[in-house]
Write a protein that binds this DNA or RNA. Structure first.
Lengths: 323, 323
DNA sequence: AGACACCATAGGTATTTATCTATGACTGTA
DNA sequence: TACAGTCATAGATAAATACCTATGGTGTCT
């Protein structure tokens, strides 16, 4: 006898129509407002009544007024509809990229420059929450393989099939020595002259190392003494402690130049560039898309030597199709 | 491009299914739990995704996990479903009569006795809110005609076609005089002896008046002096002030006997009864039904001379059909 | 490497829904 | 009392929904 509401059949459409009927107090009026015919609205009400299992409106002096149950139902409708609406707005915001989350994976060196983009972006999009993953090249490649992040920053983009990469900033690699290094005063210094110095190098997988190695090879130079150190920071400190020289991203040095200085060398800085890397296949969260778009627009303000803002624009274009 | 959710097609059923999928992390599991097949659930998810316009789940290590949007949707689902559930519970409570509202219309005399039923009822059903309307017979008849209340209490039920009436309490009409009335000491007092006293009477429409008039008529007695006063209270006060005698419900006197006393008269008290009156056609609010049912059960405790508890039971039975 | 879960898709069907037009009943006002 | 307006009901239909069975792909675990 006491049957609860048949909630399975309840539609938001029904609630919409019902709420409007209660508001207007007229079936005909609602029909007009919602571009339906009067019998349609009548029938919707009937169906809703059946779902609820209880009369929800009655006629009183020509107006439609909700019964007691009807009033409760009206409140419910308002409540549910407005909540759904909030969600809908969230969705819109999400799609616009102004809200949501994305993650970006950086190789170590890039961590020195990305904040200049991420900072202003977060400022401008407080509702977007960004996860920044940092690791050496190999670690990032692993994450990339597992599709763990939305955007990556590499110097040498992996060559996967569906990879899209756009250079956005040049990453000059410079030779650094300790603060009071006598090489600093030598004119027309060349690498040849330094080849017997001890060089502190990143691990072979890293882009910095790879670029340097390749350059040495093409220049036909072989270093006599090297030492491998896993982090840029550690290398910088080691150089400051007179443990040797190193090749580092200029941004690493610029960031905290204490105890080290850049040496001016013929042929240096070595050219290298950071790329935004995304998978063509992956449906980028709108927030991630928005970030790339933001980055493209602010490269010139954020950096002295931006590079490839056009390439980023192209990447965005390529992604648009996949949305 | 940025299309909001197609809310019109959103069903609570879909949300139910979706919420369960998120909870179990498995489409198959949900299918089993909800007694559906796996493809059915798959398809529901797909439909929901189309409504939302955005992927809501993805597979991750064999488990189904919600996307960012999916998580928001899940929260929404929980929220909406639980709210609908609260309403459903309200409905149940309402149907059980333990919650809600009804109104009861009383003729004046009945106001002295109904509190003995309404009090305990409200105590037992704090969520039920009762409107008590009080007026003279004519006023109540008007309200009755306009279907303004759910239950009425009359001594003489109106004879409408779809009226259902059940006597529930005898309403003895007694002759009252002032506190130090010499008639009080007379043995075997008869109305005949009092016929030259001044009688203070209610208006002709009232049941008390009508019963008394009828009795006088059948006894062949004609009063020599009468005065019409519209309220029982006023009559009682007038009697206490030695303005005359009166015929009143014993309950009126019992309620506040100051300054008056009941006279023992042959043939008195006159018999009369209060009736619960409802319209057969009217769908009684469950709370009203519950009140009648409560009344039926507590007549014996509430009153010394209950009457017609059986008739009330019958009335309830008759109403059951119309529910 | 297979076997096994698990999910997606295709294809099918009975039911339900969302609408409409036409029409009849009721009601308040002129 | 007649008219105008409002609502309910009936009857019809195209579309959508809620399911199902069968089957094939894919990732997981042993």
């Amino acid at each position: 006898m006491v049957s609860t509401m048949k909630i399975r059949q309840l539609t938001f459409r029904l609630l919409q129509v019902y709420a409007d009927v209660v508001r207007t107090g007229s079936i005909t009026a609602t029909a007009n407002r919602l571009h339906l015919t009067q019998p349609t609205v009548s029938q919707q009400l009937k169906r809703l009544r059946e779902i609820v299992g209880e009369p929800i409106v009655r006629q009183e002096k020509g107006r439609i007024v909700p019964t007691e149950v009807g009033q409760a139902l009206y409140q419910l409708s308002q409540d549910l509809l407005s909540r759904a609406d909030v969600f809908s707005q969230y969705l819109e915001e999400y799609n616009r990229g102004g809200r949501g989350h994305f993650s970006i994976g950086l190789v170590n060196t890039a961590q020195y420059v990305l904040p200049r983009l991420l900072g202003p972006f977060s400022q401008a999009n407080p509702q977007v929450d960004v996860t920044v993953e940092i690791g050496n090249r190999q670690q990032m490649l692993n994450r990339f393989e597992r599709h763990e992040d939305d955007i990556y920053v590499f110097s040498h983009p992996p060559s996967d099939d569906d990879v899209l990469a756009a250079p956005f900033l040049s990453n000059p690699l410079v030779v650094v020595g300790p603060e009071k290094c006598h090489w600093a005063n030598v004119k027309d210094l060349s690498m040849e002259a330094l080849k017997d110095e001890r060089f502190l190098l990143r691990e072979p997988g890293s882009a910095t190392r790879h670029t340097f190695d390749a350059w040495l090879y093409s220049a036909g130079i072989e270093l006599t003494s090297t030492q491998q150190i896993a982090s840029n920071e550690a290398i910088r400190l080691a150089v400051a402690s007179n443990m040797g020289l190193a090749v580092l991203s200029r941004y690493v040095v610029a960031d905290s130049p204490k105890g080290v200085q850049e040496l001016t060398l013929t042929g240096f800085p070595l050219k290298s560039r950071w790329h935004f890397v995304v998978r063509r296949e992956r449906r980028l969260p709108p927030a991630a898309y928005r970030f790339l778009s933001f980055a493209e627009g602010s490269l010139t303000q954020a950096f002295d030597e931006p590079e490839g803002s056009l390439a980023v624009a192209e990447l965005l274009e390529a992604l648009k199709g996949a949305r």
